[in-house]
Simulated assay, not measured.
Amino acid sequence: MPSKEQVLRLLSQGRDYEEIAGILGVPAGQAYLIATGIPADGGDTVTRGRPGVLPSRSQRLVNPREINPTGRGDVHRWVRRRAWGDPQMQAAADAGEKR
Rank of each mutant, 00 (worst) to 15 (best):
E5Q: 11
Q6I: 04
Q6R: 05
Q6W: 05
Q6V: 05
V7T: 00
L10A: 02
Q13D: 15
D16W: 04
E18F: 15
E18C: 07
E19T: 12
I20Y: 00
G22V: 08
I23N: 06
L24P: 00
V26Q: 05
V26Y: 07
P27K: 02
A28H: 00
Q30T: 15
A31G: 02
A31E: 02
I34E: 01
I34L: 10
I34R: 01
T36Q: 05
G37A: 06
I38F: 06
I38C: 05
G43H: 05
T45H: 04
V46G: 03
R48C: 10
R48G: 12
G49A: 13
R50Q: 09
P51V: 10
P51D: 14
V53S: 02
S56L: 14
S56R: 11
Q59C: 10
Q59H: 14
R60T: 10
L61F: 04
L61D: 00
V62R: 00
N63H: 09
P64F: 06
P64K: 02
R65A: 14
E66A: 15
I67N: 05
N68L: 07
N68R: 04
N68F: 07
N68Y: 07
T70C: 12
T70I: 13
G71Y: 04
D74I: 08
V75S: 01
H76V: 14
W78D: 11
W84K: 12
G85L: 09
P87M: 01
M89E: 15
M89L: 15
Q90R: 13
A91T: 11
A92R: 07
D94T: 03
A95S: 09
G96D: 12
K98S: 10
R99W: 12
R99T: 09
R99L: 11
